[in-house]
Design a protein around this nucleic acid. Sequence first.
DNA 1: TTGTATGCGTTATCAC
DNA 2: GTGATAACGCATACAA
Lengths: 334, 334
Amino acid sequence: MKKYSIKDIATLSGVSVATVSRVINDNGRFSEETRNKVLKVIEETGYQMNYSAKSLRMNKSFSIGIVVPDISNYFFSDVVQKIEEILFAKGYSTIICNTARNNKKEIAYLRMLESKGVDGLIVISGADEFGFDYSHAHKNIPYICIDREPKNRDNTIFISSNHYQGAFEATEELLAAGCKYPIVAMHKRKSSSGKERCRGFMDALQKHSICFSHARNVLTVDVKSKDFHADVKKMLTLHKNIDGIFAINDSIAMELLQSLKKMNISVPKDIKMIGFDDTPQDCYSSPTLSSVKQDTTMIAHTAIDSLLNIISNPDDTGNSIIIPVSLVLRESST
Amino acid sequence: MKKYSIKDIATLSGVSVATVSRVINDNGRFSEETRNKVLKVIEETGYQMNYSAKSLRMNKSFSIGIVVPDISNYFFSDVVQKIEEILFAKGYSTIICNTARNNKKEIAYLRMLESKGVDGLIVISGADEFGFDYSHAHKNIPYICIDREPKNRDNTIFISSNHYQGAFEATEELLAAGCKYPIVAMHKRKSSSGKERCRGFMDALQKHSICFSHARNVLTVDVKSKDFHADVKKMLTLHKNIDGIFAINDSIAMELLQSLKKMNISVPKDIKMIGFDDTPQDCYSSPTLSSVKQDTTMIAHTAIDSLLNIISNPDDTGNSIIIPVSLVLRESST
DNA sequence: TTGTATGCGTTATCAC
DNA sequence: GTGATAACGCATACAA
């Protein structure tokens, strides 16, 4: 009920605050006897460290900020959840910041995270490059980027799934399944991962000697738009022999599935489709959706290892890490 | 680049730290002239408050903890995201804790949150009642519960969707659509919301003079289990005239849809179905899934209002707040 | 092995 | 209207 401070513990166990501190942090030297004495009192009182004080003194907050566009997106929540779990086990708490891809909000969050003195930052995705130079007064917090191109690679580490490979393989799968006229469906605003996926698609076409043209092979859509269906319909009536779609993410793929159903186009018979992210809902659609699966567990572990490493070795930056992906085949592409 | 403290600002603007503090917090009195002087220096230097120091001094951390079972579940991530957004606008940061329904983990998180000195706690769902009396030394942090029955209602506020109403209306909808033999599908481990939904189902049957029996009207499943399909099949072959299912959540509903498809049972022709949560994927299944929609925006706002209120008025506790739900009809129930 | 004293950056109390 | 200064809880340099 009462709030004990290290001073109380010292008094109660008949030693000085310094000794209590040493016992708690297990550094410095002290006799086994005093250790037990102090530990006993701590146990009895239910003493809890005051992290505000500790942070102030040590200039370290034992907390990590995560900047993410939208946590209700499955891929993001999945990796955030995993990161949070690992960090907690390591004694860090996590401050999660939803930017909603809003730049002003992002900056406000970054200021807050700086003020709270986070020890490091994990930046996940987002439309633009990540700069972190919004203010001449920033504290140079160590940070790593996941799926978001840093403006300056020299002071950070860039972690990313192999979006290129995933897109390439997905496209080749479509071709192997007999598609002659595959297109890529994407939104206008390209994230760094989106660009890579697009590039993978194009290179796969090229490898199989299919000529790529933006007008013929790219369907630009906006999932939130009311014109979604109209846009799709327009594209498909303009290019009647389209028989394969690589959707840059599952959310687009799902909407496309709906649109095609409305148009009485059968998937996979008339058009084959592959998405990206292997969202759980892929199993519930009809047809079930083939998709490229990212290894969120590995991403999370890699991110944390990298971040903690550059926190202790600030010069160990500058490299990027690519995480393999895998293709999960379901009904929509067979 | 450099880290400025309030002392630096004081020196640079030729006033005392006390005055700077007053200007920053806009309390006490000072001349318009000094205010501008100080503000100008703050602007130029990019000074940022050190929250560790502020927290230590004020015994207030400007952060709120959220305890939630699983953030990759859509309903949870949706309300958490909304809560986080509102809190940030009010100057609070949010520490999100994924308990994975693990009791030991939950306790560890609570200790951490206490240590970090969160000003309040939002507890969302979970299988058991929420006690928060794990330690005789706890600090009595104000907290509110969402969809999770508190052990002691007197020191908190209990916020919940009207699960009973949702279940009741869903069941009545099934009956209105012609179902003679509806069942409820749920998992073994009942949360407080699960119990309410079950009760709503039963009362709806009773109102329409349908006799309820646990053996006949309840299908207990485990979504994660390998035996899921077998369990469903067993129930449906045992009771061949089942023609309606109220699934206690969308995740169960989706799995059921899959199972029924395997068994060549047509939805909604042979069996009608309604789920709970109005997950986005409901639009993508075939048939699309009718579901009970919770008002996450209202839940988030109510939760925060309540919490901030009991933080400043610790005695203003003891009541519970029920948020209305609405039925979203789609193909599966018509 | 242990204790004393200092300072981290801030707010608040008191004096002027 | 403004300035000195104590205190918040902790870790650590230095003494003993």
